[in-house]
Design a protein around this nucleic acid. Structure first.
Lengths: 172, 172
DNA sequence: TTAAACCAGTTGCGATTAGCAATCGGTTGA
DNA sequence: TCAACCGATTGCTAATCGCAACTGGTTTAA
């Protein structure tokens, strides 16, 4: 792990930690896909990450405090990766990246529905989502009166997938 | 230039275009430092970018629509690099990255004062700043009644630099 | 009991990228 | 005329990327 930086600029420092093509992808899958094991991250990867890259990124992200790792009590070899406060606070960056990507890049409907919800919900929704991630990953107490943002994002995604599948079937 | 992407996810697509250690640094210097020529970007670089990397990134960013390049009429060899609407809309991402970096990374005061102002000003300030960048880079008409966010960010930065220099002189 | 499936990675290797230093041919201003 | 400046380019080494195969161990089900 390096501990000398190119400059003290916050943009630069953020880039030095997260400025590559895979780190944020891994965190995104843990955050939005709730994938907590190595194999889940490897096999369900939308972008097809290689196992050595995944292993390297997980190690680096744990070293730098963006993830934590603990043994899975149900399986001696499994580790469970969790977000930390540091990575949970990336939610606004993900939301803004989602907004930007939706406006300027050729996104697919299925994979951008969550970005759309985050954009429409704005900062209050992001805060709710972050609180929920703290419950899920930091063992923070859960407020049972609040509906789950995680579930809402997931449901919206599955709905689009189902709708498009039905439309494809009808078109045959 | 590539035109096949790993997936249609907005986060991924943003990362495929901007996910490296230099692209956003270059855009940051054009945006916040108003550096428009190759040499300005090279020599004033806080992080010490190499000339071949800078040349490569400028070319890529122009190809991908994040920068435009025109000849400088005052000098046959000079080119002037400008932001496009695509890169101007990165302001919210920069702001959120600045906020995150300030909270979790060892930033320097001088280089993070602008991030602090952007954080405190919130989205209304970002919108003003983006409108101003459109005037500066897209030749959009300027509203003369509005005070310049660019000047405010620059003044705050210079003030911190001066204050710290004075404090350092007094300490001797 | 044993074989197949699953687990988290590791290794080897070629291709790409990063980063440094020196250099290029042309332009400008004194 | 000549030194300084201009936007790059080249040559080089080291580091990283990314693919495919593999490792040693664990769990599950026949």
């Amino acid at each position: 792990m390096q501990d000398t930086y190119r400059s003290g600029c916050p943009i630069n420092l953020t880039l030095e930690v997260l400025g590559d093509r895979w780190s944020l992808i891994v965190i995104r899958d843990i955050m939005f896909g709730n994938r907590r094991h190595f194999r889940e991250l490897l096999q369900n990867s939308e972008e097809g990450i290689a196992s050595n890259i995944l292993a390297d990124r997980l190690k680096r992200l744990v070293e730098r405090g963006l993830l934590s790792r603990e043994d899975d009590p149900s399986h001696k070899q499994k580790g469970i990766y969790s977000l930390t406060e540091m990575s949970i606070r990336l939610v606004p960056i993900f939301a803004e990246m989602g907004t930007w990507g939706r406006h300027f890049m050729p996104v697919s409907e299925e994979l951008s529905i969550r970005a759309q919800l985050l954009e429409e919900g704005g900062r209050p929704l992001w805060e709710d989502f972050m609180e929920e991630l703290r419950v899920l990953h930091l063992h923070a107490p859960r407020d049972p009166s609040k509906p789950s943002v995680f579930d809402r994002l997931r449901a919206a995604y599955l709905e689009v997938v189902a709708r498009n599948k039905a439309a494809a079937a009808a078109a045959e």
